[in-house]
Design a protein around this nucleic acid. Structure first.
Length: 476
RNA sequence: GGCCUCAUCGUCUAACGGUCAGGACACCGGGUUUUCAUCCCGGCAAUCGGAGUUCGAUUCUCCGUGAGGUCACCA
């Protein structure tokens, strides 16, 4: 059996956003699921739109996601080159075949003339078809005019799509289209058909924006006498508000922005895969390997899915909680606040252990951990605004805090000893935890929220805890 | 506008023509010795509308409606 080969073929016009990466994910999963090859091909035939450095950013994105490619620029492979601008001879060869069969001709019109045809059709409320203006005696193609494919037979097409099912289109979908531009470079419409064949691509998996031109491609496959690969068109990811396709213009963020915010690639992978795909069970969390094992195109949704960042957040939190503290520490290296610069790795790991369960993305680390690394100014609002503590006079709170200080001073500062002493204090002061613990917690952290009291004190250490208690005492 | 496609809770989705239409996120309530969070329990919430086929339609057909895609010397 022929090995399965899929490809992701971006044009280097900018960063990769969520929709782009999802477009790469499905072919990648199909390749991995079938032990096939995943090819990265750069479609750089529009030199005007090319963005410097875009290829590197795309590679970085794919690498971060763990979506590795078997062939492509740099890594090479048996079907290179993988940059379309380096394949012009190949396109010329195939174009020549079309010319010799009488199925391609030089376009004698100027762009303005073609536009005039278009405007005229519009004014008459007709659909514009270039083939209505097909020149009877086109000049020989010298490479300076665009080369058009001449649709051999105007007919309806019926074909199968692995995701969308059986599709069809009427003859109106067929029109002569440019295959080689006047700058000598091929158009997408031509180049991808040639390249997919030359590169042995068995499954063309892409976004549904190409469905409308599929009949043209089908006609081209016939004219070129090459087999039609398996076709699969995936619906788009929609912007969070509205129902438009998610795109850069709608403010879609680069995947690397999510990386910078401390989203985990495994969460992003899981999230993107389950946006528009499920395995038919109630499973929500899929590891990379499970995704590879279970993915199939026939379970991909036919309608577009809204990008729901809440769900991404939830999933990312889930994956963060699954990490060991050591792993979490490794991944958190770039996210510490400045004040943590002098803290030891060991201390940071202890802190991470305490905040892990409330972390949704790594960029939250500074705000969640600030009080572990530096003394925050005493904020009486925390006490005065606390619904338990506001009922007390400051003098009462001061007495309570002094009693707490005694116990804390005497503790060996293990979490268990601290817990024991805190519980004793509950009895000796006959106070509710809501009062006593809130008071100590606020005094020692000066934060509106923090991890459990005993654990927090143990990590903070005696010196820091007492220093902060004294500061609050002085303010009461 | 022409052509193509899609349509289940707010969102992502499940459901051989026969289910009390299930799960997850979000939201609301309760519990786990303070707060935030985790975790557990509970709640709210959907088959776009109309015909037809059928003993029976979320599921099949048609018509509406809504939405998306596409009509480039862009991909």
């Amino acid at each position: 059996m022929k090995p399965i080969r899929t490809r992701f073929a971006p044009s280097p016009t900018g960063f990769l956003h969520v929709g782009n990466v999802r477009a790469a994910l499905f072919p990648w999963l199909v390749a991995r699921h079938n032990n096939g090859a995943f090819v990265l091909r750069i479609e750089d035939t529009d030199r005007a739109r090319e963005v410097e450095g875009a290829i590197d950013v795309m590679k970085e994105t794919l690498n971060w996601m763990g979506m590795t490619w078997d062939e492509g620029p740099d890594v090479g492979g048996p079907y290179g080159p993988y940059l379309q601008t380096e394949r012009t001879e190949i396109y010329k060869k195939w174009a020549q075949k079309l010319i010799s069969k009488g199925l391609a001709y030089a376009d004698p019109y100027t762009p303005e003339e073609v536009q005039a045809f278009r405007d005229q059709a519009k004014a008459e409320k007709r659909a514009f078809l270039y083939r209505d203006h097909r020149p009877t005696n086109p000049p020989a193609w010298d490479g300076s005019q665009p080369l058009r494919f001449k649709i051999p037979e105007i007919k309806a097409y019926h074909w199968h799509d692995e995701i969308m099912g059986d599709l069809s289109a009427g003859p109106e979908a067929l029109d002569d289209f440019i295959i080689i531009k006047s700058d000598g470079l091929p158009t997408y419409n031509f180049a991808h058909v040639v390249d997919d064949y030359e590169m042995g691509i068995t499954h063309v998996i892409r976004g549904l924006e190409y469905i409308a031109s599929q009949p043209k491609y089908l006609a081209l496959y016939e004219a070129l006498e090459i087999p039609v690969p398996v076709l699969a068109h995936a619906p788009h990811i929609m912007a969070e508000d509205g129902k438009k396709k998610l795109g850069k213009r709608d403010g879609a963020k680069s995947i690397l922005d999510y990386k910078a915010q401390g989203f985990l690639p495994e969460a992003m992978l899981n999230f993107l895969a389950s946006l528009g795909w499920n395995d038919g069970t109630e499973q929500e969390i899929f590891s990379r390997q499970e995704l590879i094992d279970k993915f199939s195109l026939d379970r991909v949704q036919r309608s577009g899915a809204r990008f729901d960042e809440q769900r991404l957040l939830w999933m990312n939190g889930h994956y963060i909680r699954e990490l060991s503290v050591d792993e979490l520490f490794e991944r958190s290296r770039d996210f510490w606040p400045e004040a943590a610069a002098s803290a030891s790795d060991e201390f940071k790991k202890q802190v991470l252990g305490l905040i892990q369960e409330r972390l949704k993305f790594l960029a939250e680390i500074p705000e969640l951990t600030a009080f572990f690394f530096s003394d925050l100014p005493v904020n009486m609002e925390l006490i005065n605004g606390n619904k338990q503590l506001k009922k007390f006079e400051h003098i009462e709170l001061k007495t309570l805090l002094e009693q707490a200080k005694e116990q804390i001073t005497a503790s060996d500062f293990t979490a268990t000893d601290l817990t024991e002493r805190l519980n004793q204090l509950l009895e000796t002061t006959s106070q509710k935890p809501g009062v006593l613990f809130s008071l100590i917690r606020i005094a020692t952290t000066q934060a509106p929220a923090s991890p459990g009291l005993a654990d927090t004190l143990a990590v903070l250490g005696r010196e820091t805890a007492l220093r902060r208690i004294d500061a609050t005492l002085a303010a009461l």
